[in-house]
């Protein structure tokens, strides 16, 4: 349907030579939200515009094309970095090969190499993780595998990202030995467009995809995000006590008296200890009372078998396995004074 007539007021011959700038300034600038639905127009694309006029000057319909204007879309340099670790990554004092994961996205409109670096001493934490390597996820599984993923080498290995695509980057660090439970160490991964960075709007003439300029976008063409380790350590304290009973009903350590030893293992910290075992040699001049080992009040056999305790003729042993911070284990056994 042709809805005529509209726009008829604009062709007065006496239209004053109002400046074009003035004309546009008089038009209200609509307060439209800056919508940017992906994908952005690829750098190097030519925008071409032509209008056509049709009219009848008495000789039937005629068509006139306008001149064609062409614009080359320049390359926008933009990048985003986001940590893939939703929470702090647990580590332990002195641990090597500790991994943080990041997502680096080329949010520009042209293929671009990105230079990767880390910052571990920016403060705001308790210690500085020692970054040893940066790896780039080679097989897209987002899981770090040093045998599969690509060790990043600055300069020659700056990853090339197509527009609107992303890679996973792993930062590998060593936790210093001196840290204590609850310490937090932040590492920031920085990705910067190799063509250049700067204030938004600054440009690099002729360095864009397709022969145009490269223009720094709203991200400044570099971006970073923090990942953090949390030291999750645990310490064990053992407290041993002895109680004597004898036939006289006193607590004197006379021959024939029974000594009940109690060993309490307490684990403190946010982590846990694994492979915890309590071993105690039977003191000289005493004789172990068979089948007297208990763990948490439950009797254990002397044989090295399915239960946690055993006695081998010189010492008792109770294997506690993994014990989380905040828990205690109580072991008792008895001997008789010779």
């Amino acid at each position: 349907m042709m809805k005529a007539p509209v726009g008829g007021a604009k062709h007065h011959r006496l239209l004053p030579s109002c400046s074009f700038i003035g004309l546009l300034a008089s038009l209200a600038l609509p307060a439209q939200a800056q919508v940017s639905p992906p994908p952005a127009t690829r750098a190097g694309t030519t925008i071409s515009n032509t209008a056509t006029a049709t009219f009848d000057a008495g000789g039937g319909p005629q068509t006139v094309d306008s001149n064609r204007v062409e614009l080359l879309v320049d390359e926008l340099l933009d990048v985003t970095v986001a940590s893939n670790n939703p929470t702090d990554v647990p580590t332990t004092p002195g641990a090597t090969g500790q991994v943080l994961s990041f997502r680096v996205t080329n949010s520009g409109n042209g293929p671009e190499n990105f230079v990767l670096s880390t910052i571990a001493n920016a403060g705001g934490d308790n210690y500085d993780p020692a970054v040893t390597q940066i790896y780039i996820d080679a097989n897209g599984d987002n899981a770090f595998d040093p045998n599969v993923d690509t060790l990043y080498t600055p300069g020659t290995g700056d990853p090339l990202l197509q527009p609107e695509t992303a890679i996973t980057v792993f930062v590998v660090a060593t936790t210093p030995g001196a840290v204590v439970d609850g310490n937090r160490g932040i590492v920031s991964l920085v990705a910067a467009a190799k063509t250049g960075i700067g204030t938004p709007g600054s440009s690099f003439a002729g360095q864009g995809e397709g022969g145009g300029d490269a223009v720094v976008g709203s991200t400044g063409a570099d971006a970073d995000d923090d990942g953090a380790f949390i030291v999750s350590a645990a310490a064990v304290t053992l407290v041993k006590s002895a109680a004597v009973t004898n036939a006289l009903g006193t607590t004197d350590p006379i021959p024939g008296a029974t000594i009940t030893y109690t060993i309490v293992a307490t684990v403190v910290g946010s982590g846990s200890v694994s492979g915890l075992a309590i071993t105690d040699n039977i003191p000289a001049n005493t004789i172990y009372t068979p089948a007297s080992i208990t763990l948490g009040g439950t009797a254990l056999s002397d044989a090295a078998d399915a239960d946690a305790g055993d006695y081998n003729g010189t010492r008792i042993n109770v294997a506690l396995g993994t014990v989380a911070g905040g828990q205690t284990r109580t072991v008792t056994f008895r001997t008789i004074i010779q």
Binding site: T50, A51, T52, A53, F55, A57, G58
Partner: peptide, 10 residues
């Protein structure tokens, strides 16, 4: 001549 039925399309 005056241009009648003038339409511009872009």
């Amino acid at each position: 001549q005056p241009a009648d039925k003038f339409v511009i399309t872009n």
